[in-house]
Design a protein around this nucleic acid. Structure first.
Lengths: 113, 113
DNA sequence: GCGATAGTTAGCGACATGGCTAAGCATGAT
DNA sequence: ATCATGCTTAGCCATGTCGCTAACTATCGC
């Protein structure tokens, strides 16, 4: 089903980079233009641009250009699929927690040897 | 804060691959040995091994070897940091939306004058 | 011991990622 | 018109990722 969900892969991949996460956090406070985003990172503009396009392709931010200034803003609902997936997983995992518990304890015991 | 959290990067990167997510989902039902995990993926053993070690390094699964059989199991609490980060982000995002709300209200009030 | 089974290691190839510089627009200010 | 600003494009380099095969080790069953 969601085995080959491209959205999730894009999202997770976009989130896997510290720079991109920090850009996201920065954007969470207020929309910003590209140069403003580049500043704190210490990275060059083209590099930041690349990160931004990764974020945009994942649907995490949206950008628009007014004059020569591109403004970037977060897309709050973009994380919903991630959240859903997590909830889904947790549901399954917890349903099996009884068996897992015993097994994990066993592993830990073995590791302790 | 958790801006440059290496754990998060490892976790997100591990989750960014469909094969790894399907392995996780499979493992959520019951622990399994490597060959059993390889089956459904259609991938070769060394490839699956690599995915497993990525998952293990991210702390998402734990494995132990008994005789010639390596058994893999999920580590349910491993997703907690991801969940926390999501919650954190949502908190900021929502706070910003509130402020935006207030801003819009303010503008409207000013316009009404 | 022998052969089948389960996993591991080494290493290859194709491609993606993340950084950079240099050069090229397009727009805004003077 | 000119110059500075803000972004964009093209392209380079080092490294990482994901798949594979081939060969190896280690165990289990007979």
């Amino acid at each position: 089903m969601a085995k080959h969900d491209p959205d999730l892969s894009l999202l997770f991949h976009a989130l896997a980079d510290p720079t991109r996460r920090s850009i996201l956090t920065r954007l969470a406070e207020t929309p910003a233009q590209v140069t403003d985003l580049a500043g704190p990172t210490g990275l060059r503009l083209p590099t930041v641009m690349r990160h931004l396009s990764v974020l945009e392709e994942a649907g995490l931010i949206s950008t628009s250009k007014d004059g020569r200034i591109r403004t970037c803003a977060i897309v709050p609902e973009a994380l919903d699929p991630v959240r859903s997936w997590l909830d889904e997983q947790r549901a399954i995992w917890e349903a099996r927690l009884d068996r897992l518990d015993a097994f994990v304890m066993n592993v830990m015991k073995e590791r302790a040897e």
